[in-house]
Design a protein around this nucleic acid. Sequence first.
DNA 1: TATTGTTATACTCTATAACTATA
DNA 2: TATAGTTATAGAGTATAACAATA
Lengths: 158, 158
Amino acid sequence: MSSPQEDCARDLLEVVPLVTRSIRTELRQHRTQELSVPQFRTLLFLRHKPGTSLIDIANHLGLTPPSTSKMVDGLVSRDLLTRHICENDRRRIAIKLTEKGDKSLDFAIEATIQSLTKRISTFSPERIETLSCALQILREAFPETEISICNKPLQKSF
Amino acid sequence: MSSPQEDCARDLLEVVPLVTRSIRTELRQHRTQELSVPQFRTLLFLRHKPGTSLIDIANHLGLTPPSTSKMVDGLVSRDLLTRHICENDRRRIAIKLTEKGDKSLDFAIEATIQSLTKRISTFSPERIETLSCALQILREAFPETEISICNKPLQKSF
DNA sequence: TATTGTTATACTCTATAACTATA
DNA sequence: TATAGTTATAGAGTATAACAATA
C-alpha cells in the first residue's frame, strides 16, 4: 500500500536526478570557468561567509578536511580563492573569494539560471507558481543549508 | 530584472542539490548493497529494458562506452548483472538483472523512498499535493528519461 | 568501412591514516 | 592533549585513444 507521501517521495526519486544532471552539465560546460558542483557550492558559501575556515567549508559540503583542503588548493591555484593564516588562531586559515572567484561565481550562477529558465519558459504563470511553492516546501524538508544565491555578500570581509 | 521563471530557476538551483545529496547518501548507505547513483540508474533501466546493449545503457546514462563497460564489469562481479553475447549480432551484449540485482534494486528503491517519505511526512495533504503537481511539471521540463520506478518489469526477458 | 565493446592510461574526486603546527 | 590543516596514499568514477571482433 502506498500513501500520497510515498508516491510523492517516489516522484522525487525519479525527477530530482534529471534536474541535477542538467545543472551539473551546465556548470561543467563553461570552458575556463568550469566548476564542479562542490566547487560551485564552496564559492557560494564563501560569498556568504567570507573568511571561513577549512573545517567550516568541509562541514558545509559534507566532505572530509583532506578532500576539502585539496579542492581549496585547486581553487587557489586557479586564482578563485585566497588563503591566509588567522592572526588570533594561527592554526586556522581564512578563505576568501578573489575578484576573479566572485566573477566566476556570478558567471556560473547566471549561465545555469538561464539554462534552467529556458527549460521552464513555456509554462503558464500558474504552473510556475506551483513550482515555486513546491520548492519552498522542499527547502523546508531539506534544510541542510540556508545559503541563498539571490543575495550578494552579507559582509565583504571577515 | 528578474522574471518569475528566473526566480523559480534560482530556487531550483538552490533546492535541487539538497535533495540530491539526501538521495545519494541514502543509496550509498546500505553496506553490502551500496549503489552509486549511476549504478542505481543502470539497474533501474535494465528492469525496464532487460537485455539492453552496453551502448544503450551508455546513452541513457550520458556516459562513454568505456566508462559504462567498467561500471557493468563491477556490477557483474557483484553478481547484480549478467552479460551474454547476442546471437543475432555477435558484437552486441545483452545485459540483464540477476535475481540478486533485482532484489538489490528493490531494496535501494524502498530504503530511499522511506527516507524521503520521512522528510515530507509532516506536511499537510495540500502541501503534498502541491509537491506532487510540481514534480509532474518538472518531469515535463526535464524529459530525458521516461523510466518509472513504480512499475515492475515490462518484459521479464528479452 | 562502420559499429560494438574492451583495454590501456590518465585525471578528478573522494576517503583514511599519519603528520605538523598551534592552542 | 586537542584542534586545524596538510601530505601521502588508495579507490571509485570518469574521459580519450587505441584495439579486437563482428557486420
